[in-house]
Structure formats: C-alpha cells, structure tokens
C-alpha cells in the first residue's frame, strides 16, 4: 500500500468516527456548564456521562490521528531513502506517541471513575502526560530531523542534484 492510500484510509476512518460522534446523543453539559456565580467561567459538568455516551470513540479517533500524522511525515522522505532503519524509527516513534496517548486517556478515565488524581511535576498525572508527553512524542520526530538530516532529508547528493538543476535552468534561461 502506498503512503497516500494509507493517509486516505486513515482520513476516512477519522471521518467515520467523527460521523459516529455527530450522531451520538450529546448529554447536557457535555461541553461545560456556566459557573453558578462567576461570570465567563465554565465548569466541567458530568464528564462521565460524556465519556459513556461516546464509548471509546475519542480514543480511537486520536489513535487514527497519530497514525495519520506519522503517515504524512513519512511521505516527506523520498521513497528511495525509506530504508529499514527509517521504518524502525517511525514504528518506535509512533509506538511511543500511542503509548503516551493511552496514558493520557486511561489516566483521565481513572480520574472519572475515582474523582482523584495524584500530582506529578505540578499537575495531575494525566495532565502531565498531556503537557509533556503529547508535545514530547512529536519532539522526537523534530530531533530525528536534526540528527538524520543528511541521511534522509537533505543528503549531500540531493543538494548537489538540486544545485545542478538550478545551474541547468539558469543556462537554459541565458541561452534564450
């Protein structure tokens, strides 16, 4: 399967989950309730009813989005440079992103079930996973860009090939 077909299938899956969410009955206060005394401030309302109305659809939605992001990033590397090590990196990087997302979501579900959460690094545990983990899981791809720049993104021979193309075009323009 080509990358673009994989991207297309993932987009259709995301669209399907979105359609399911659109059709699910929205419980009252699902998007927050106005605070009883403070103007302009909303509170959570019954979070549990929202989650139960949607089942695990949000979890799978984000799984598909993470895979879509990975598939799109993979498209940015020239097909003839996609070797086994690159595939391994993408598998590990996306695996890490999915692990982080699972920690965020299951931690949130645990909070909904118990109403309690420990504080770690200044925030409730699922929030810490979100703030640093969700951000960090794609910082891994940013770092890979820096480290593997000359191997996958702009190898010296590609740079030379581009310079040759520019020279070729300039000489053609001068000839005209």
């Amino acid at each position: 399967m080509k990358s673009i077909h994989f991207v297309f299938v993932l987009l259709l899956i995301i669209a399907g989950i979105t359609a399911y969410i659109f059709m699910a009955e929205q419980p009252p206060g699902a998007t927050g309730l106005q605070h009883t005394s403070i103007n302009g401030l909303s509170v959570g309302g019954d979070r549990g009813s929202q989650v139960s109305a949607l089942g695990n659809a949000p979890y799978y939605f984000q799984v598909a989005v993470i895979l879509l992001a990975g598939a799109m990033l993979y498209m940015g590397i020239a097909p003839h440079r996609r070797d086994a090590q690159l595939k391994l990196f993408f598998a590990v990087g996306l695996g890490f992103a999915l692990f982080v997302w699972t920690m965020v979501y299951t931690g949130y579900e645990a909070y909904l079930a118990t109403g309690e959460s420990n504080i770690a690094f200044g925030f409730p545990v699922p929030t810490t996973w979100m703030l640093w983990g969700i951000w960090g899981s794609f910082v891994v791809f940013d770092l890979f860009y820096v480290v593997a720049f000359r191997r996958y993104f702009l190898p010296k021979e590609d740079e030379a090939a581009f310079d040759a193309l520019v020279r070729e075009i300039k000489s053609e323009q001068e000839a005209l």
Partner: peptide
C-alpha cells in the same frame, strides 16, 4: 471543579482533539 485541570478541560475530549 477538577475537570478544568484535567487534560481536556471543561469543553471536553472532542473539542480538544479537534483542535489538536
């Protein structure tokens, strides 16, 4: 409140993920 400092705030999980 509690919901506000959790990962999806008071607007809920789908609002947050659609922004992402």
């Amino acid at each position: 409140d509690g919901a506000d400092i959790m990962p999806f705030g008071t607007l809920g999980v789908m609002a947050s993920l659609s922004w992402y």
